[in-house]
């Protein structure tokens, strides 16, 4: 099918089989390999993207669900200030080890921070509970999200004054 949707702020048109998995469409057809596949069954969260502002698992989405959707992948994160601050916090707080869970983790964290701008550590863990990491034990990832929340609030406060 021929589909039109918005990807990282730009309208794009692609040809894809109806049932092509969105994770494959992103990685193989569009060359956006930032979104990863870790299990293909919705258990690990490595394939997390934002669709219409909500986190979704692209390994359990098909192309036919894309028309009209606004999709954000890790490649489009830094176009917004909060995404850029979150990514920087991951880098600086030691939240990245092997890095394979990182894009999905950042997407889930971004979705969380857009719903709750001052989450407790427990709320952060809850928000990341659908994203598996095998390297970090999550401690520094929670540190990063906590720090990003603070950075984003400060940035917003400065903008408002």
């Amino acid at each position: 099918m021929h589909l039109t949707f918005t990807l990282n702020g730009n309208e794009i048109q692609v040809e894809a089989a109806d049932d092509r998995r969105v994770v494959d469409l992103l990685r193989e057809d569009l060359g956006l390999t930032g979104t990863k596949e870790g299990c293909g069954t919705g258990e690990c969260g490595a394939c997390t993207i934002l669709a219409d502002g909500e986190s979704r698992l692209s390994c359990l989405m098909v192309a036919a669900q894309l028309p009209g959707a606004h999709i954000t992948t890790v490649e489009g994160m830094t176009a917004q200030t909060d995404g850029a601050l979150l990514q920087q916090a991951f880098v600086e707080e030691g939240a990245v080890q092997c890095g394979f869970c990182t894009p999905g983790m950042e997407m889930a964290a971004l979705a969380l921070l857009r719903q709750d701008d001052a989450p407790s550590r427990d709320t952060i863990r809850e928000g990341l509970s659908g994203n598996l990491c095998r390297c970090t034990g999550y401690v520094k990832i929670v540190d990063a999200v906590e720090r990003a929340a603070s950075d984003i609030r400060s940035c917003r406060d400065r903008e408002n004054t």
Partner: peptide, 9 residues
């Protein structure tokens, strides 16, 4: 149910 993204779907 599941996790945050699963709950969105």
């Amino acid at each position: 149910v599941g996790g945050p993204a699963i709950r969105n779907m």
